[in-house]
């Protein structure tokens, strides 16, 4: 009897969730779509554009991790996309809007080559192998004079004719939405299921005929395509960049966005990026101290939300439910 009612409750909750999620999503998208109409400050539009860019990078990083590999070169792949597009536009004079998808494709190909090269490495060995690759990419950028080397690259052609932040804001909003939807559909397709199976046991996966090496290479290609895309967009938006934006620390911060948000959930990296990007904005006066706030957030997540910020609603719910139950029990005993 009790179980029945619990199941019933569950189904009600589920149908509630089914309505609540799309509504929440629609509200969020509407909020960001209407935001520039109310807030004209170029500074906030700039910060939000950057947030969109890094959200895509973090989500695409997480997409690779569902196959059980943890790449530590994602920042470098963003750099590959950015530098390729910038070089094409600057030296060959191609239209930036053409360079961006081209360099995204090139990044995907490089990502698949690296995935092929490292396909026999697993777990920590794969992570460190890709870490070395990322470091190597930065050295290569330093070594070629056309990239500007240590001082960075300047005079990258602008994406649109205008310098108006609002145009770029909408561009990145749309690009981020498209990328996120594409990655979402990818993860919850049969390919995503196969990747998750490989993550759980590559032995079992290949025993039922899954070519695990090929699928791991494929997911590298997909993840790198989107990070290359957004990296290229970043290059033409910023118009100047230096390799330090794509070094190991940058990769590590991408990993932090994913881990803080919650690596087991698709929404995790999105939430993580928004928190880590927007939190320091509340303490903008203390700019040089702002890393402390990010670190503090890390500490809070480590100790109180080991499954990431996405687990916060569930944690709060169970906390209040427990308290509610406690009150009910004390009421009963009181009467």
């Amino acid at each position: 009897m009790k179980r029945m009612s619990a199941e019933h409750q569950n189904s009600i909750n589920k149908s509630k969730e089914k309505i609540a999620k799309p509504v929440l999503l629609a509200v969020l998208i509407a909020f960001f779509a209407l935001f520039p109409l109310f807030v004209r400050s170029p500074y906030y539009l700039h910060i939000l554009s950057l947030t969109f860019i890094y959200t895509v990078a973090a989500v695409s990083l997480r997409t690779i991790t569902i196959s059980g590999q943890f790449p530590l070169a994602h920042g470098a792949f963003m750099g590959i996309g950015a530098y390729l597009s910038a070089l094409m536009a600057k030296f060959w004079g191609w239209l930036p809007l053409l360079c961006i998808p081209l360099s995204a494709l090139a990044t995907a190909v490089i990502g698949m080559l690296v995935g092929f090269l490292f396909s026999r490495l697993r777990s920590l060995h794969y992570a460190v192998g890709s870490l070395f690759f990322g470091i190597g990419v930065i050295y290569i950028i330093y070594a070629f004079p056309c990239t500007g080397g240590y001082t960075g690259m300047m005079g990258i052609p602008r994406l649109f004719q205008t310098a108006d932040k609002m145009t770029y804001y909408y561009f990145f909003l749309v690009l981020a939405l498209i990328s996120i939807v594409a990655l979402y559909r990818f993860e919850f397709s049969h390919i995503g299921t196969i990747l998750k199976a490989i993550a759980q046991s590559h032995l079992v996966a290949s025993s039922v005929g899954i070519n695990e090496a090929w699928y791991r290479i494929l997911v590298n290609g997909v993840g790198c395509f989107f990070v290359g895309l957004i990296g290229a967009g970043y290059a033409h938006y910023n118009m100047a960049m230096s390799p330090t934006a794509f070094n190991f620390m940058a990769t590590l911060w991408l990993c932090m966005y994913v881990l803080i948000g919650g690596i087991n959930s698709f929404a995790g990296p999105i939430i993580g990026t928004f928190f880590l990007f927007l939190l320091p904005e509340f303490v903008r006066d203390l700019q040089e101290y702002s890393p402390y706030f990010s670190a503090l957030l890390l500490l809070i997540v480590i100790f109180f939300m080991p499954r990431g910020l996405v687990s916060l609603p569930a944690l709060l719910k169970s906390y209040f439910l427990k308290r509610g139950e406690g009150e009910r029990i004390s009421n009963v005993s009181g009467s």
Binding site: K196, S201, L203, V204, S207
Partner: peptide
């Protein structure tokens, strides 16, 4: 397989 025979999270 003798051990580890499944996709445990599925």
């Amino acid at each position: 397989f003798q051990l580890n025979p499944l996709f445990g999270d599925f």
